[in-house]
Design a protein around this nucleic acid. Structure first.
Lengths: 235, 235
DNA sequence: CGGCCTGTTGATCTGTTTCAATTTGGGTGG
DNA sequence: CCACCCAAATTGAAACAGATCAACAGGCCG
């Protein structure tokens, strides 16, 4: 088993890097101790599965490090990636008894795991936490609607441009330079996120590069002319 | 102004048709009175707008009768319908200060309106209501992910088949025959929901009819061979 | 009765996919 | 440390699903 739990001796939540981004921001010091009491840290290696669509949803998670992909599949193997998650993102918000999607690591990933029943008990006690969760869900819903617009109505170039700008926004929100974005995922992952093929994604990157809109190096893209991408992305 | 409010004399919530479907199911009799105190009934005619994307989100709604469409647009007019809402569905769950989408009536529609600030105050008092809202959001999120899979990875025939089966499921959940579904929306609406053109939707309906999978009459479709659609829909 | 909006059907066109051949680059073992 | 290997990415050519353009039919309302 590649998933291993690490026990916590003190309360690392208090000094957590992503505390302000995560649901934990809803709690004060004492409450945070209570949360810490039910949490365990999980680490998974690239390409490994955190959980699968259809599995009983015993845990909820908070990403603290690395990148995950969340996806759904058709029986014949066609795949749709519904999101890439990074530090601060919450995961597992399917209040049925089974996960509605699969979650896999893109890079080495570290997460906080909350047993569902125990987290639900804490929700009763701390309404602020429940409110925060509702906020998270609302934001995800808004993002999902943007993605539907992208999948249903944008051209390949518009999709790729929107994707790059989304990553740039995230980088900025995490206090990193917004003109240089990391691309830890493969072209196939990007294609499955945008409803395209790998080849179309690759061609579009090449086109953007020859047009001077981006400069592509290894697992990183430098956005040279954001305005060119913004025109395409349609906003 | 086409939107008119109707004042309530007693507490019609108690005898509401959709009470068990809506968020109101989370409340008991006394609590329901409190909810009733902040609610107003709104009626809108076909094709009229309930609210627009970007407008300040002062109200939340619950549909009690009719069908709405919820959509987003690109600057050049391309449109993506992210959902059709019917009796019992909740609307306006964008906990930012502005609506993330436009809501318009497909048929004559009646809704309960909750002023946002007042509903939020009630949420503080009745945690069950907040829990219910989180459940609603989770369900919508799961539906949104299904729709992303459809938009990104399904063929035209698969999309139309999935759509018909979705409507059949809804009809069944509302206690109506599952083999005969109402289609109050236009072909263009369906196309904008499925990420297709009107023409492709029309051709696909025709094909299903010549194949004997459906029988199409006016604003209604009879599903003759659900298994044929299920094969296509991929589940 | 006539006009208009919605839907259907046909013909053609095009963006994206599919299939296929190279190229690149990072990791590994000799 | 270098050469090799394999997965990922790139690029080209051909095929195709769905879009676009266009003509026409039907139903509804004024």
């Amino acid at each position: 088993m590649a998933i291993r739990s690490v026990s916590l001796d003190n309360n690392p939540c208090r000094s957590c890097d992503v505390r302000e981004l995560a649901i934990c921001a809803a709690l004060n010091g004492h409450e945070l101790d209570r949360l810490n009491a039910i949490v365990s840290v999980v680490q998974i290696a690239p390409q490994q599965t955190l959980f699968c669509e259809g599995e009983p949803a015993h845990s909820l998670f908070n990403v603290t490090r690395g990148t995950l992909r969340v996806s759904k599949m058709l029986v014949d193997g066609r795949r749709q990636i519904t999101g890439f998650l990074g530090p601060g993102d919450f995961l597992g918000l399917a209040f049925n008894d089974t996960y509605a999607y699969t979650a896999e690591a893109v890079t080495a990933t570290r997460l906080c795991r909350f047993p569902r029943t125990k987290l639900e008990a804490l929700l009763e006690e701390f309404p602020a936490l429940e409110k925060r969760l509702l906020g998270v869900a609302s934001n995800e819903l808004a993002a999902a609607q943007d993605q539907m617009l992208l999948l249903g109505r944008k051209s390949a170039a518009e999709k790729v441009a929107s994707f790059l700008l989304l990553l740039a926004d995230r980088a900025k929100r995490q206090g990193r330079p917004a003109n240089s974005v990391e691309l830890p995922m493969t072209r196939t992952d990007i294609a499955d996120y945008l409803g395209l093929t790998m080849e179309t994604v690759s061609r579009t990157f090449s086109r953007f590069e020859t047009e001077g809109a981006i400069r592509s190096e290894r697992a990183q893209v430098v956005i040279e002319r954001p305005e060119a991408l913004e025109d395409l992305a349609g906003r």
